[in-house]
Design a protein around this nucleic acid. Structure first.
Lengths: 261, 261
DNA sequence: CCCCTTATGAGCATCTTCGAGCATGCGCGC
DNA sequence: GCGCGCATGCTCGAAGATGCTCATAAGGGG
């Protein structure tokens, strides 16, 4: 019984019963109460559950009922960022998405939201992406129109880049570009680690009426060298609640609409 | 046991069990734990798995669908057809692949063959495809250069079609187009059920120096209305051993190299 | 045929995880 | 308001996984 399995078991119980009991789970999983407590505290720090004396309860802000623990870093933060981003997508919009774990979550959130709102045919959202994994997931979701750019695949990131990608993008106009980035700060703007990806992202931003950056707090202290766009070109910035207020104020002052998911 | 074979083995286990154990895989594959750890870290950097203490777990960032695809009809026939097709792909070739269960098998066979032959860098095969599921699988399996066409996704077939697809294809030259079709016979040639897909397939065949059709026996008695190309444009036809000899003779007479997998 | 790059395995110091014990303090009943 | 019981948080030690380094093997290129 490793940590991952325990956390999943705990989330399953909470999803089913809305609460867990430390003692009972310790017996059931064959570990000490200390361990269960540590696990619950960790989940609580990620705002996935709320601690109570003797156990924990489900948080009111439960986004997806079948809560599955994703071992990726900053998973809950990304889910909340994604939910906030999805809310800003109006019916019928044409949305560009680049690759990355955050934007993958955004894609899922947009798809879920379209189902939830039961959008009419003419209000269907169109998603344009150069991320193979996002396309692969969205293809089966009927109520979204999916368009892929062409291009050569980069094995490390599941993104298509290169001249073919640029060609495709140059033939498309977007209402909104939602970009995950490797680094973002009030002075340097948005950046990527790979110059090929940066170029594609720049172009996608240029084809869009509005530009949204989605990034968890780690990206604000990260460094990357390939420039995507300046802060002045960014309309929305969605992040989590672990970002210094000073940074957010600077972004607001620069004309960016800042939203904390 | 080289690196690629190990990585494939690890991915297979993760796809099946949702998790791997460092120690167990080290024993099973006959290498040291350090090596397994290095492999898992590399996969983790590609977001294909998430490291846990003692092993790794699936990230769900796009590794569930390939499994669904494995259970196809006529599976053994398709696997043999695919293996025969893969053998006709020379090192360094630029190969076009359209969508479908047969061509998905072909993609896997080509990938496996490249691993088995341990192809040098300059002999890497380039695969150009408009099938999202194929792209998704091949991105994971590396050591193949992958190019996607752009286009709008068709939910039923995982294929990209439309003007963007045509535009991309018109900028590409192929050594070989490997096409799965819905119907093929000595008189009518190759056909598809969907006219959009047929158009893309026609274009792909037109961009290629050689055209190969892969189809199991059921396709020879099937009917479809959208024409892809005439028999005279087909260079190779790979099928299974349940096809009437008379049909094969007619195809040979028409100048098609017929191979029974 | 030789050299250089890369991959692999072993050893070692470090870090993480987990369980147990103990002082603390929260909450419930009186 | 008060005291008791129990969950909690913290610390410490043990077990084991990890990362790092180095030596060696293997493979590819010239």
């Amino acid at each position: 019984m490793n940590r991952y399995a325990r956390i999943n078991a705990l989330l399953d119980v909470i999803a089913r019963d809305k609460h867990v009991d430390v003692k009972r789970m310790a017996t059931q999983l064959g570990v000490s109460a200390s361990t269960i407590r540590r696990d619950l505290n960790q989940l609580s720090a990620q705002q996935l559950v709320a601690r109570t004396r003797g156990g924990a309860v489900a948080t009111s802000v439960s986004y997806d009922l079948p809560i599955r623990y994703r071992a990726a870093r900053q998973a809950p933060e990304k889910a909340r960022i994604a939910a906030a981003a999805a809310e800003l997508v109006p019916p019928g919009a044409i949305v560009g998405l680049n690759g990355g774990t955050t934007t993958t979550e955004v894609a899922r959130a947009i798809a879920s939201r379209c189902v939830a709102l039961n959008m009419a045919r003419q209000d269907r959202v169109t998603i344009v992406t150069n991320a193979i994994n996002i396309a692969n997931e969205l293809t089966v979701r009927r109520h979204i129109k999916l368009v892929m750019t062409g291009g050569a695949a980069r094995p490390d990131s599941f993104e298509l880049t290169g001249p073919l990608t640029s060609d495709t993008l140059s033939q498309i106009d977007l209402d909104l570009a939602i970009l995950g980035v490797d680094a973002f700060d009030p002075v340097g703007g948005a950046k990527a680690l790979d110059e090929e990806e940066a170029r594609v992202n720049t172009l996608m931003a240029g084809r869009a009426r509005k530009v949204m950056i989605v990034a968890d707090n780690s990206k604000l202290s990260a460094r990357a060298f390939a420039r995507i766009c300046a802060v002045s070109e960014v309309d929305y910035f969605i992040t989590d609640n672990h970002v210094p207020g000073e940074t957010l104020r600077q972004l607001s002052a620069a004309g960016v609409t800042v939203i904390v998911g």
